[in-house]
């Protein structure tokens, strides 16, 4: 009886965890596949607050900008409004999934990737100017 009760509780916990994860993932997808305009005409000039962010901006331009232009929705999904934590961004860059290519350490060094993550986190907070319609 006690074993049966424990089994039901564990099953309920697993369902709850999976549901929460799916909900969170769905939210990320909704945001991630949308727009995230941050360019100067829309949001004003972006000033890198630290040397790390500045280096990250340069590395972003070199490796990420062609597909995620300006971090906006473009050829590939938007990045600017995706609240992904740093470790997930790194995992995605290193593993590459679906149409996203892999970027091994021989292409993007660990330090460059750290800088890119710092830039991506900074650009999220660079919001459109008052009066500009944004996604």
């Amino acid at each position: 009886m006690i074993l049966e009760k424990n089994g039901r509780r564990k099953r309920a916990e697993r369902i709850a965890i999976l549901s929460a994860a799916l909900l969170l993932a769905g939210l990320f997808v909704l945001v991630g596949c949308g727009s995230a305009r941050r360019s100067e005409p829309i949001a004003g000039p972006f000033h890198a607050a630290t040397p790390e962010i500045e280096r990250g901006q340069r590395a972003f331009m070199q490796y990420c900008n062609p597909c995620h232009t300006g971090g906006e929705a473009s050829f590939a999904p938007a990045l600017n409004n995706k609240p992904a934590p740093g470790f997930l961004i790194k995992l995605q860059v290193r593993a590459g999934l679906g149409a996203m290519p892999r970027f091994p350490q021989s292409v993007i060094s660990p330090r460059e990737l750290d800088n890119i993550v710092a830039y991506l986190k900074a650009i999220r907070h660079h919001k459109p100017k008052a009066g500009e319609v944004h996604g």
């Binding site: 929460a20 997808v29 590939a76 997930l88 999934l97 679906g98 996203m100």
Partner: peptide, 20 residues
């Protein structure tokens, strides 16, 4: 930790599949 891992996995899969 389990929730984070599951979320990360699902997020990666669906984001990567976004293009497809």
């Amino acid at each position: 930790r389990i929730a984070s891992a599951v979320t990360a996995g699902i997020l990666l899969l669906v984001t990567a599949a976004c293009f497809s």
